[in-house]
Write a protein that binds this DNA or RNA. Sequence first.
DNA 1: CAGTGGTCTAGACCACATG
DNA 2: ATGTGGTCTAGACCACTGT
Lengths: 233, 233
Amino acid sequence: MPRYLQVRDDLLQRIALRSWAADEALPSEDKLAAEYGIAVGTMRKVLDALVTDGVVDRVRGRGTFVARAAERSSMLRFVRMHGKAKNRLPTARIRSMTTAIPPAEVAGKLKLKPRDKALYLHRIRSFDDEIVLSEHIWLPLARFRKLQKYLKSNSPPSLYPIYETECDVLVSRAIDDLTAKPLNRANAAVFKLQTKTMAICVERLMLDHAGEPVEWRTSFVPAERFQYSAEIR
Amino acid sequence: MPRYLQVRDDLLQRIALRSWAADEALPSEDKLAAEYGIAVGTMRKVLDALVTDGVVDRVRGRGTFVARAAERSSMLRFVRMHGKAKNRLPTARIRSMTTAIPPAEVAGKLKLKPRDKALYLHRIRSFDDEIVLSEHIWLPLARFRKLQKYLKSNSPPSLYPIYETECDVLVSRAIDDLTAKPLNRANAAVFKLQTKTMAICVERLMLDHAGEPVEWRTSFVPAERFQYSAEIR
DNA sequence: CAGTGGTCTAGACCACATG
DNA sequence: ATGTGGTCTAGACCACTGT
């Protein structure tokens, strides 16, 4: 295995361990190169690889910083905004929060042991009275106990920054799986729509920089509100 | 503008002009560097950029080759295969082919002048008797006259290789836009489904290596057959 | 074997941000 | 003025592919 990949993986580990805060620069390429005993050119190759993987951002004159996945991965990128909703963010509300042993499928995705508990959230996002997104969120309780306390007295517009500040969990990567399904009775009731109304179901697994699963989320968007863009090269 | 970007853009032009065939290697990095009067290290940076943009593939010991977008961008990646359909490719059939002045919206996407004609294809893909994909394809007639002749006596499983061999058009990049829509009467009839059955509509614009629009395609997948995966970093 | 790309080095100079 | 990343050079050695 080439040196630059070894060094990349080591840096990835240190980033996963949250060695640097959001506003704190990593050591400069010179210092890192000296530390690892490699040439600066090789260190640049390591950092370039981390940039293309979306793990760090580099700013000339300032330094190298750990990237946050939050902005890129909002579920709202699946929601078509029309009319007055444009240029506005929907409100977020948590409708229920419990701890439980999750279904086997969820436990598998989160790599939980058979009797490990998880924190479950049901959260909706809406414009005025129109609900546009319903989300069922499962989090390993071991890492998210503080979140539970926090959410009892707060209702933040976005969760990922809270994962980081409260629970020291930094989300790096998301894997989305999209299908179309008719709404079951419970989900239809959330949207005040008829049962079997078609919706897009987004199943998302979130991973940290070490590749450990952090969150499993099943989201529903009524089909009429669904929109998604992608570029393939 | 840095030298390596200038050289990259120049190479991009030459690739767009189809200077190298599918199985023909570009000149080696040494030769290209000499040709452009830059260092080999800089030429490597150019080629690395083209690799991450998906424009070329490099194979150690063999050379650098122009990449084909065809494999990555098949519409079938939106279609869920179940049961017997797995491990099989659906058949393709062209149900109609005409030349016409396209609707203003399509002409705009293809950057056609007001009275430019286009080649229109309606094509379906199916497993046995089950139709899984219906596609409405618009191509600038100026570049695709030979395709029209070709399709009168051939029914190829995939179109992009034909664009290249018959019309000298190499597809580089696709932009997809996904929404959910109820089928109108004509499209529902194609699938032998009821009008207003929900379907996923994929609008795709294909571009060549020069960034010129090459194809506009509107495809429908019945919602039950739709599936799509993406990774966000 | 010659030719290709993959890794790695050890410098140079520049543009930009911050104090 | 200092330190950061961005560009560019001119080599070296290695691994792999083809003849």
